[in-house]
Amino acid sequence: MKKLIPITIIILIIFGLAYVMSGKIEPQENVRALGKFYLENSYFGDYSAKSPEVVTAILWDYRGVDTLFETSVFFLAIIGSLTLFRLNKKQEKEAKERIEKVEELTLVIKTVTKVIVAMILAVSASIALHGHLTPGGGFQGGSALAVAPLLIIAAYSKYALEKQGLDKTRALILRSIGLIGIALIALLPLTKGGFIMQNQPIFPWLGGSLIFYNFFEYLAVGAGFTAVFLLLAIPEKVFKKILGVGE
């Protein structure tokens, strides 16, 4: 209870200050001019992005290059984490062998996890593929996708995931496919007289290139986080042995 005294004082000060302040501020009722421009033009209008979802329209059309470079920041951050935990081929093989019996969770959790993983895959794909119509998109779907391997690592172990073929290298390949896909979809309209990194109607029967951007971003984000967690799940003993420190 003693811990709560400072926070009570802080809250009281907040209310007091707010009482003083409240006469002086104007509640904001209008959107800024730039926001109004996006709202009016996202589907109708002269500068249309042909998407009723304004946030996705801004992400992949109006500020498309911005998002491209944000994705490259994501790429570099993951590369940086992998570099910190770098292993050579022999050490990587060593890391894949289980050195001791890992304690796994009970049967109930394992069985439920199997079903849940199948459902998470479907749900995350739905979030990503409907990003141009309803709330959602590549970033959201990708972060939902990353929960599935995380659950498998928690309920079974990292070795179970690797035995079925999803190891670090495969995850990195998937992520590279995602990034190359984004670059290709951005560059492809140039050959047909379109513009770079915008929602161009190169695939008219699916409503433009938004869906492809979303899908490839989904792959890149999901696989990037998966690779990180596969590295993080390696037991500390293996690393200590490789680095030759401690114990």
């Binding site: 959107v31 800024r32 946030v55 998002t67 920041v73 951050a77 984490s81 993080l232």
Partner: peptide, 24 residues
């Protein structure tokens, strides 16, 4: 206003990736 939301979405995901780097 949709603009802050579009900026925050990338900020959330990229921030997570940078946090992963710090954690490593």
């Amino acid at each position: 206003d949709p603009l802050p939301q579009a900026l925050v979405i990338t900020a959330v995901v990229i921030g997570m990736a940078v946090n992963v780097l710090i954690a490593f």
